[in-house]
Design a binder for these strands. Structure first.
Lengths: 179, 179
DNA sequence: TGAACTAGCTTAGATACTAAGCGAATTCAG
DNA sequence: CTGAATTCGCTTAGTATCTAAGCTAGTTCA
């Protein structure tokens, strides 16, 4: 039992210490490449993903989640609209709001691009038993939640600190240089 | 047995179909937030991650991996240098090359920012047994590899197709609009 | 009714990207 | 050994996308 526990902590160390970060870096890179392929730019792609995931949303909600300004969101939505992925629709109850809808045809086009990729991704899961697959699913769900909460927290932290653009690390150990 | 197999395929479906993508979106968002906190911008942060992960590298290698132009890499490295994370050093054997080194002090500062986060992330792994942790580790490693290879492939595909900026999806189902 | 607030758009300015091209160093063919 | 072709990283010009600030229209509340 102590042996297994030792293995566990060692595995856990490796996952949070290096595997997760490597995976994160690769994911960002991949995300960027997909965006390029779609002709969207990473921000637009990210916002489209968020919309697909969370369903109907207004621009300011999207701004709050992504940390972008409302001005930037205007640009994002305009581009997504023009590219045929998203449509603006006035809210019934509050006519200031623009509810963002996904365009079914655009989604079909997206699926045409992603489906072959998904088939390929399925090989990633070969060889795992049900018990392990459940663990992977649970881990992904937890990490997703964690990332969202952390991102929100980090942004709040940055905002509270004055929203400066220079590294926080620098404030700990200031050096001679300051352009 | 057929019951367990059914559960497995169902779980696998859910993982590649929705959980992985949600996780990916959250990861990108989180990455961006961390970059903001470091005062770096997502691209700089991504490049720094790649350097930490893969060790010594020249600018053009970094350009090849990220899909950025060498001109953009010049800017990235200049910013990372000025922020104290990276140092340029001429290659002994080929004096055209600039080998990129990590600056130990900058790395310490980074750890100061990340360590509290990592402790928190460890709770993500509570409740999994060794067998499951091994699966998670293996899955992360496979996905990372998959993402890198796919990103490279996608970029090659885009380049071969003429490197246009408009959505590929549009070329499948062209509509009336073409600004 | 009018003051304060909110949603989203617009503008000006900053920043980071691409594409093209340069000089210097290296490699390779003859 | 010499000159052409290639490669490396940087520079420049142009474009795109972001922030910050301010605006208008719609909503809420005293």
């Amino acid at each position: 039992m102590s042996d297994a526990a030792g293995d566990s902590t060692q595995l856990a160390e490796e996952i949070v210490g290096s595997l997760a970060r490597r995976h994160s870096t690769a994911t960002v890179l991949f995300h960027h490449a997909v965006a390029d392929l779609l002709g969207l730019g990473p921000t637009d792609h990210k916002c489209l993903d968020l919309l697909r995931e969370r369903g109907l949303m207004t621009g300011s909600e999207l701004a709050a989640i992504t940390g972008l300004t409302t001005g930037a969101i205007t640009g994002v939505v305009t581009r997504l609209d023009r590219a045929g992925y998203v449509r603006r629709e006035p809210d019934q109850h509050d006519r200031r709001k623009q509810v963002l809808h996904l365009v079914p045809e655009g989604m079909r086009d997206l699926h045409a691009v992603f489906d072959p990729l998904r088939e390929d991704a399925a090989t990633l899961l070969e060889g795992f038993d049900t018990h392990q697959l459940a663990a992977i699913a649970e881990f992904l769900a937890r990490s997703t939640d964690f990332a969202y909460r952390r991102a929100t927290l980090l942004r709040a932290q940055l905002l509270a600190a004055g929203g400066r653009t220079r590294p926080v690390a620098r404030t700990i150990a200031p050096t001679e240089e300051e352009a």
